[in-house]
Design a protein around this nucleic acid. Structure first.
Lengths: 240, 240
DNA sequence: CCCATGTTTCGATGGCGGCCGAAGCATTCC
DNA sequence: GGAATGCTTCGGCCGCCATCGAAACATGGG
C-alpha cells in the first residue's frame, strides 16, 4: 500500500541470488521453462517454482503454458531496463574502490564478451563496435542519456532494410532524427545501442543470419557472412 | 565476485523497507544527517547507522562529515535513476491487476502531488505541466526514451538564462538539438523532464525564487512570482 | 575538562525467508 | 489406462539479517 513498501517488494525480489540468476538468464529476451531456470540457478524445481510464482505475482516475469511446459519471460522492457540499471550501478566506477572493481568483473566467457544479446538488442564487443562505427561515420549521434539517427544514418538503415522513419513515427517524432537509447555495457563499460533502433538492428542481424543463437547462453556466434556484412555495411572492425 | 552476486547485493540493499525509506528521503538530492534518516525510517540511530554503513560500502550513498554530523546523500545520478526505475516497474500498469493499482498509489500529500523535486529536477503536476507546455509549443520533442530541444526551445531557454547550447556542448552535441531524459512520474504517471535540462530548469526555478523548499519534505511551494513566471515564460496552466 | 549531542560498534534476540523432501496435480506419450 | 515428465503445494529445518540495548567513540560547547 505505501509507496516505499511496494518499492522494497520489487527490489527485494531482485535482491536474492537465485532469483537474480534466473532473471539474468531471461535477459536475452527468450522464454525459458521452469526447469531450465531451476538448472540455471542450481536449485531444485520446487524452489524455482516458488520464486517464479512470486516474481509472476509481482509482474516481473510472465508465463505462458505450452503443453506440460511453462515458459517464463521478462514481463516488460521496463523490467529489462531495470536489471540493466542495477548492473550499471553495481559496476559503476568509484574513485575509492577502483582497485577492487577493475579485475574480472565482466563476463568470464570469451564468447559472452565478444557478442551477446541484452534483452532485445546486441551487447558485448559487437554491440559496442557497431555503435562506435555508426557514431564515427556520423550515422548516429549519442549523448549520455539519448541519441538520434542522422539523415545519412536513416539512409543507411533504409538500404539494409530498416524503415527507420516509419519505425520512429509512432513515437511522435517529426523531424527525422530519433529514438535510440544508450545502454551501458558492463563488460565493455561502453555505451551501445538499445531502444527501438537497437532492437531493430538485432532482429535484422538474426534475420539475415549475421548472428546465430547458441543454446543455453546469451552469447551469440557471428557467422562469416555476418563478419563480412558488418564490415561492408557498418565498417565495423572486430579483429584488431 | 560473480556478476549475479554483485547484482543481487545492490538489489538486496534496495529491497528492505528501512533502507528503501532512507533512499527515498534522499531522492530530493539534498544531504541528510544519519539521525534525520533514522527518524525518517522510524528506527533507532544504531540501526540506521548499520544500514548507512552498508549502503556507503556499496556506493549507493556517500557521506561527508561536518562537525559531529555526518551528511549522507545519493552517491550518483545513476542511483537516483535506478530508484526511479524500480518505482516505474513497481507501478507499471498490468492488464490483469489494474483494479488493485489504480487506487491511492500516488503520494498522499496534496503538496507532494502538486510540486516536488525528484533528485535534481521537478516532478509532480508542476513538472508534468512544464513539460507538456514545452512540448505543446514545440520547444521540446519527447519520445518514450529520449527527447531534444528545438531551435525555438533553445531560444526560449536563452531568454530565461539557460545557456542550452553551451550546456549540451560537453556531451558531444553538434546540431543544437538535445539531451533531456523523460522520467516517468509515479503520481501523475506522465513523463516529465529529467536529465541535464530538467536539472538546469529546477536550479533556475530555485534561483529565481519561483519555487521554495519546504522543510522535511520533497514537496516544494510555488511562489506567486513563480505562478506568474511559469505562465509567462512557459504558458503553464496549473489551475484548471 | 566535563558534559551534551551525534554516531558507531558489539552482542543478543527474534523473525522472515530460502531451501529441500515428500506428495499431489496436470499433461503427454505409449 | 498407466507410466513418465514437468510443475506446484505443503511442511519443517536452518541460516541470515534487521532490530535494539548497552556501551564506546568523536566532536563541540561551556
Amino acid at each position: 500500500m505505501p509507496n516505499d513498501a511496494k518499492f522494497a517488494e520489487i527490489a527485494a525480489l531482485l535482491g536474492e541470488t537465485t532469483r537474480a540468476t534466473m532473471l539474468h538468464a531471461l535477459m536475452d529476451g527468450r522464454a525459458l521453462t521452469a526447469s531450465e531456470l531451476a538448472r540455471a540457478a542450481r536449485v531444485t524445481p520446487q524452489t524455482a517454482s516458488n520464486h517464479l510464482a512470486r516474481m509472476t505475482a509481482a509482474n516481473l516475469v510472465c508465463v505462458s503454458q505450452q503443453g506440460r511446459h511453462r515458459y517464463y519471460r521478462l514481463a516488460s522492457p521496463a523490467v529489462a531496463r531495470l536489471i540493466e540499471n542495477v548492473m550499471q550501478v553495481a559496476f559503476e566506477r568509484h574513485p575509492a574502490s577502483i582497485s577492487f572493481n577493475t579485475i574480472a568483473t565482466g563476463p568470464r566467457d570469451a564468447a559472452m564478451r565478444l557478442a551477446r544479446t541484452c534483452y532485445d538488442h546486441l551487447a558485448g564487443r559487437l554491440g559496442v563496435a557497431i555503435t562506435d562505427a555508426l557514431v564515427e561515420h556520423h550515422h548516429l549521434e549519442l549523448t549520455a542519456d539519448a541519441g538520434w539517427v542522422t539523415d545519412s544514418g536513416a539512409q543507411l538503415l533504409q538500404q539494409i532494410g530498416i524503415d527507420w522513419p516509419n519505425l520512429s513515427a509512432d513515437r511522435r517524432n517529426q523531424s527525422g532524427r530519433v529514438l535510440c537509447r544508450p545502454c551501458l555495457d558492463w563488460s565493455e563499460r561502453r555505451a551501445h545501442l538499445a531502444g527501438a533502433l537497437g532492437s531493430a538492428l538485432c532482429e535484422l542481424a538474426f534475420q539475415k543470419d549475421w548472428i546465430r543463437r547458441r543454446t543455453d547462453t546469451r552469447a551469440v556466434m557471428i557467422t562469416p557472412k555476418g563478419r563480412r556484412d558488418f564490415r561492408a555495411w557498418f565498417k565495423v572492425r572486430l579483429d584488431d
